[in-house]
Computed example of a mutant assay.
Amino acid sequence: MPRIAEARDAAAPSSTEQHARVGRILEAAAELAAENELERVQMNEVAKSAGVAVATLYRYFPSKTHLFVAVMLDQIDRMREKFARRTRPESSARDAVHDTLLQVVRALLRRPLLSAAMIQSNSMAKAAAVPDTARVDRNFRQLLYDAAGIERVTERDAALLRLLVHSVFGIIQSCLNGRITVPDAESDLRELCDLLLAEWPDSFTPAG
C-alpha cells in the first residue's frame, strides 16, 4: 500500500521548465502504471524515466499516493480539454452526461492497471493529507456540468452529481476487479443516469 507522507499538496511549478518537468513526471508515472500494478511502480523508476532526480520527484510529490492522485487529476483535465473541443450534440442534459461518462469509462478501461492505480490512490487519500483529491472531485464534476450545459449549479444539481460520480467509480472498480463485465458496466451507467438525473430538463438555460 502506498505510503502517504506529510500533509501538503505537490509543490507548484512556476517556470516553464518546472511545468515541463512536472509534465514529464506525470507522463512517466502513467506509462509505468499502465504496465505494472501500483505496488510494483517504484518512485526511483518514475524519476529515472522522467529524467529528474528522486529528490526533485519527492519535492513535487511527497508520496506515491500524491503522485497518482495528481496523475488522475491530469487525466481528467486532458479529458476536459478534449471534450471541450467537440461540438455538443443536440441531446438532453441527461443523455449528454451519459455519453460523456461512457467515453470516460471506456478510456479508463483501455488501461486497466493505470486506472486501478489512480482510483486506488484517490480513494484511500484523505483530503487533509492530499489536497489534490478535492480538485479531482471538482474537475470531474465540472466535466459533467460542461457536458450537460449547466452554468448555474444548484445545491440539488451538486448533490445529484456527487451521488453519480461516487456510483460511477464504484462501477469502474467492479469492472476492473472482474465482478461485472464491460457490457454490464455500460448498462449500469445508462440506468444510473436515468435514475439520478430523471428530474433534469432536456437542456439548461445558459447564464446571461
Rank of each mutant, 00 (worst) to 15 (best):
76 I>P: 04
69 V>L: 05
25 I>A: 03
106 R>L: 10
28 A>L: 07
196 L>I: 12
15 S>E: 11
86 R>W: 11
111 R>N: 13
29 A>D: 02
176 L>Q: 04
114 L>V: 10
185 A>C: 05
11 A>D: 08
56 T>K: 01
158 A>W: 06
82 K>Q: 14
153 V>G: 03
106 R>I: 02
130 V>M: 08
166 H>Q: 15
49 S>C: 07
164 L>K: 02
44 N>A: 05
114 L>S: 08
184 D>K: 08
24 R>Y: 05
62 P>D: 04
199 E>Q: 12
154 T>F: 03
27 E>P: 01
81 E>D: 14
109 L>A: 02
99 D>C: 00
25 I>E: 07
19 H>C: 05
136 V>E: 07
157 D>A: 05
87 T>V: 15
6 E>L: 10
181 T>M: 01
6 E>F: 08
95 D>Q: 14
139 N>S: 09
188 D>T: 10
50 A>E: 06
164 L>Q: 02
42 Q>I: 03
162 R>A: 13
91 S>T: 11
54 V>Q: 11
186 E>S: 00
189 L>K: 00
62 P>C: 03
108 L>W: 14
88 R>F: 09
116 A>T: 15
168 V>A: 00
77 D>Q: 14
1 M>P: 13
63 S>L: 05
10 A>K: 12
2 P>Q: 11
72 M>V: 04
191 E>W: 12
147 A>W: 02
181 T>G: 04
127 A>N: 12
95 D>M: 09
180 I>W: 01
132 D>T: 13
200 W>C: 02
50 A>H: 02
156 R>T: 14
76 I>G: 03
92 S>W: 07
199 E>K: 10
84 A>L: 08
104 V>G: 00
91 S>M: 15
41 V>K: 01
164 L>W: 06
147 A>Q: 04
164 L>D: 03
154 T>S: 15
141 R>M: 09
57 L>H: 02
188 D>E: 15
119 I>C: 07
13 P>W: 06
5 A>C: 06
27 E>D: 13
71 V>G: 00
120 Q>T: 15
101 L>R: 06
46 V>K: 00
162 R>M: 07
116 A>M: 13
88 R>N: 09
14 S>C: 11
9 D>M: 10
74 D>P: 03
166 H>I: 14
81 E>S: 12
208 G>N: 15
176 L>F: 03
156 R>E: 15
194 D>C: 03
